[in-house]
Design a binder for these strands. Structure first.
Length: 825
RNA sequence: GCCGAGGUGGCGGAAUUGGCAGACGCGUUGGACUCAAAAUUCAAUGGAUCUUAAGGUUCGUGUGGGUUCAAGUCCCACCCUCGGCACCA
């Protein structure tokens, strides 16, 4: 009896696959393409089992699709630029590149040791010149087309990371990476005009039925479209107007004051002389407050009258103008009309400052007092002149038409989405390819001068600050336009730009004169299956969609959405928390692979539960799966010597009966189940339980049967099928047993087995009989039996008679092949 | 507050179209093997309850209603957990 030497087996097959280049994917093939993509890792250290789950899911699908005859593209690379590398470099007095490449080597080895079927010849690193050259090219394309611009603006600054962040990278007022509360600073920054694509990013979500509803909803929320009107309010005694945005033009008659954002330039323009000192004191106070708290819900409403009045353009009311802390400068016009009768915030403010409350929407549900809450629901307009009596959408449309006709307002759409701030005051990223010339101003670096190289000899001794501005050779340059001395941009690009197009580079990873070949990309994209964590629901996934749409508009690709199907896998928890180095609860795959083998790790990560759910790592659960693998090994080890030379072609299925027939039926049933579990969408946990069932069945057979009466040809046939079925999940074990059974490699090149539907339909089956819905008996019947016959047989049963005697049988429901139900009273 | 997902044995989880709830695994218990233990292997395993036993009965999928011959699955109301958004006018 031989031991299951997982290490020998796994390394043997990993080597063989590599030598035979089993997983190399030609760009063109007779076969149908399948682009299988797993979100590439940020190489911050070693992978733990939580990361590994992601890659295992992708690998199972890739291997399965390959067996189904697809030309599968299954690439891997590294999202290799980023701040952690720089921080580590500062801490360990090394270079970010060195740290990054070191980590990449570890991760690559981990992935190889796990048996991932990647086409390693397509490996990409976003930090390599040959890659970031094209990231810079992408920037130029956006710049040329007016989609990249520079402006001075309030930006989120992370004091710990010492850089600005995009809105998407601020979570609850804190830096998404390090958790430090962000502050606001004014800086000259580069932006991508993602807002110009807001409508399409929103609408095209409907074209993505293969995405989880959850992710689409999150993006919808983030884009935050609202429809309404812009209205101009004249100011009493001045030739000025305040423009506001509202989604409720039907409440225009209920405006009792106006409010400006503290940052609004209108404040200083409009404030009267007498109110100036009080107002600026208020502004100072607001500025000193925590911005996140100030702009989050339930904060106290504060403000101050600026001494000026506006005129309500629809009814001529004079209304006071306030500055209020709850009005945001970044949304709409930075000014609002306040309708305390029908808006919670305005209501709170009005209560706090004793402002009048007017009711202009009729309280439909019997409420007539607004003492404690405003009436925010839609309803019938009242006290609104000629518009009184209108309600709902009709009312809103009528009011807007009126505004447009009178020239005091117009239909308008607003989004919560802001432009993508892409400048980072860091070293380890792709330099923004722009030069500042005293004569010509902003000058983009010409395409043929790319890449703008990141200088390598860099001093990281000054803690925290980017070293780029201090490198003379980098900063000082000539203007590409006029040749005069000029200064280079010293900010680098947000690393989310690197990852917003990497799925295109995999198609032609080594091409030198362009980022990708248009024809090849159009052939391979969109990605058929994208797999990754839900934490990228907004960030990476929306940026990638945006960049794809830009490339589409510029004619570089012929598809508008990059990822046809998206699967978001759940996280692995350990000791009740997300695995993380800082919490000290990571489980490394390395030790497990050394002790139990990669196949056990793969199988457990698949068996742990539905892959989209979060799951708690459980050591004894893992051992259970490992036991299953040992159990497979023992069975094969015992029977292979006797089976090796048998020819399964001799198997005649028609002549099977009894135990053998049952076993054969089971094989077909399980084959069907596993196939459907995979096809139906990542139900790998139940697929594996099917394999367990099948193995139990085989064990039952070989133990029950006398040695002499066993059908060894059938046994061999089943054992061959079994390893084929387990191959996508435990590929090393599959290949090894396949070979030991006397077959030539590679199982990797074999087809996924079919199944015989006909044998699944048996001539006889068991039919449960229920009385008033409770199972009381079962009968075995012929497939072709008539309903009448079933009824007759049912009523003859001793057990059934017992239940229906002295009762009245109301009716008998027979659902063939399902159930019989007798209704008695 | 709004939106989304979910709630099933001691535990992880199955149940695909309304048709035998609890597949598979873990754990537990018992038998075999062994000097013994481990490993392995076979069997039992939702709760309550009746019976000497074989075998019954009854309750049971977050709670309360409803539809149906039949509900984990459909409808209504509610409770709880998780995730997202949250002064966005």
């Amino acid at each position: 009896m031989s031991e299951y030497d997982h290490e020998r087996i796994e390394i043997k097959w990993q080597r063989k696959w590599e030598e035979a280049r089993c997983f190399r994917t030609p760009n063109h093939s007779e076969k149908k393409k399948f682009y299988n993509l797993v979100m590439f890792p940020y190489p911050s250290g070693t992978l733990h089992v939580g990361h590994v789950k992601n890659y295992v899911l992708g690998d199972v699908l890739a291997r399965y699709k390959r067996m189904r005859g697809y030309n599968v593209l299954n690439p891997m690379g590294y999202d290799a630029f980023g701040l952690p590398a720089e921080n580590a470099a500062i801490e360990n007095k090394t270079h970010p590149a060195k740290w990054t490449y070191h980590n990449v080597d570890i991760i690559r080895n981990q992935l190889k040791r796990l048996g991932m079927s990647y086409d390693w010849e397509r490996e990409i690193y976003t930090c390599k010149e040959e890659y970031y050259k094209w990231t810079q090219w992408l920037f130029l394309k956006l710049y040329e087309n007016g989609l990249a611009y520079k402006k001075k603006a309030a930006a989120n600054w992370c004091p710990h990371c010492k850089t600005v962040l995009a809105n998407e990278q601020v979570v609850n007022g804190k830096c998404e990476r390090c958790g430090t509360p962000v502050t606001i600073i004014q800086l000259d920054q580069w932006f991508f005009k993602i807002t110009e694509y807001a409508e399409r990013l929103l609408n095209d979500l409907d074209k993505l039925p293969g995405w989880p509803e959850r992710v689409r909803t999150m993006q919808k929320n983030w884009i935050g479209r609202s429809v309404g009107a812009e209205v101009d309010f004249p100011i009493k005694g001045l030739e000025k107007k305040i423009r506001i945005f509202t989604t409720r033009p039907d409440t225009l008659w209920g405006v009792t004051f106006m409010a400006l954002a503290p940052e609004s330039p209108l404040v200083s323009e409009l404030v009267t002389e007498e109110r100036k000192s009080e107002v600026s004191a208020f502004l100072e106070k607001v500025q000193s407050e925590d911005r996140f708290k100030r702009t989050s819900a339930n904060g106290p409403k504060e403000g101050i009258f600026i001494g000026r009045y506006a005129i309500n353009p629809v009814n001529g009311d004079e209304i006071p103008i306030y500055v209020a802390n709850y009005v945001l400068m970044e949304y709409g016009t930075g000014a609002i009309m306040a309708v305390p009768g029908h808006d919670q915030r305005d209501f709170d403010f009005a209560k706090a400052y004793d402002l009048p409350i007017k009711i202009v929407i009729s309280p439909s549900n019997g409420r007539d007092s607004l003492d404690d809450a405003p009436l925010t629901a839609y309803g019938t307009m009242i006290n609104s002149g000629e518009f009184s009596g209108l309600s709902g959408k009709e009312a809103i449309d009528a009011v807007i038409d009126h505004l447009e006709k009178k020239g005091i307002g117009k239909r308008s759409v607003n989004y919560k989405l802001r432009d993508w701030l892409i400048s980072r005051q860091r070293y380890w990223g792709a330099p923004i390819p722009v030069v500042y010339c005293p004569k010509c101003g902003i000058v983009p670096v010409p395409e043929n001068e790319l890449p703008v190289r990141l200088p390598e000899n860099v001093d990281f001794s000054e803690k925290g600050a980017s070293p780029l501005p201090k490198i003379k050779e980098f900063v000082e340059t000539q203007c590409p336009r006029c040749g005069e001395t000029a200064i280079r941009e010293v900010d680098t690009m947000d690393t989310f730009i690197d990852s917003s197009w990497y799925y295109l580079r995999y198609i032609n990873p080594h091409i030198e004169d362009k980022p990708f070949d248009i024809n090849d990309v159009n052939e391979w994209l969109p990605v058929d299956q994208y797999i990754g964590g839900v934490e990228h629901a907004i960030l990476h996934l929306m940026y990638s969609r945006f960049i794809t749409k830009v490339l589409y508009d510029l004619g570089y690709v012929n598809f508008e959405e990059p990822f046809e199907n998206l699967f978001t896998q759940g996280m692995i928890y350990y000791k009740g928390a997300k695995m993380s180095k800082s919490k000290g609860n990571v489980i490394s795959p390395d030790d497990l692979i050394a002790r139990y083998g990669a196949d056990s790790v793969r199988m457990y990560l698949l068996f742990i539960g539905p892959p989209e759910n979060d799951a708690e790592w459980n050591d004894s659960g893992f051992e259970g799966v490992h036991r299953f693998i040992l159990r497979i090994w023992r069975l094969y080890d015992e029977y292979i010597p006797g089976l090796k030379n048998l020819n399964t072609k001799c198997l005649s299925v028609e002549n099977l009966s009894g135990d053998e027939k049952n076993l054969y039926v089971k094989l077909n049933r399980i084959t069907k189940k596993i196939t459907e579990d995979i096809e139906r969408g990542f139900h790998f946990n139940t697929a594996i339980s099917g394999l367990m069932e099948l193995l139990n069945e085989v064990y039952g057979y070989v133990q029950r049967k006398e040695e002499a009466s066993k059908d060894f040809v059938l046994l061999k046939f089943i054992l061959e099928r079994f390893v084929t079925l387990i191959y996508p999940f435990a590929p090393h074990l599959g290949e090894e047993l396949w070979e030991l059974l006397g077959n030539d490699p590679f199982l990797a090149d074999k087809s996924w087995p079919g199944y015989d539907e006909n044998v699944l339909i048996s001539e006889r089956y068991t039919l449960p009989i229920t009385i008033n819905g409770k199972v009381r008996d079962k009968i075995e019947v012929d497939r072709n039996i008539s309903e009448e016959e079933i009824k007759r047989l049912t009523l003859e049963r001793k057990r059934i008679k017992k239940w229906i005697e002295r009762k009245r049988v109301e009716k008998i429901i027979v659902v063939k092949e399902k159930i019989v139900n007798i209704v008695v009273k």
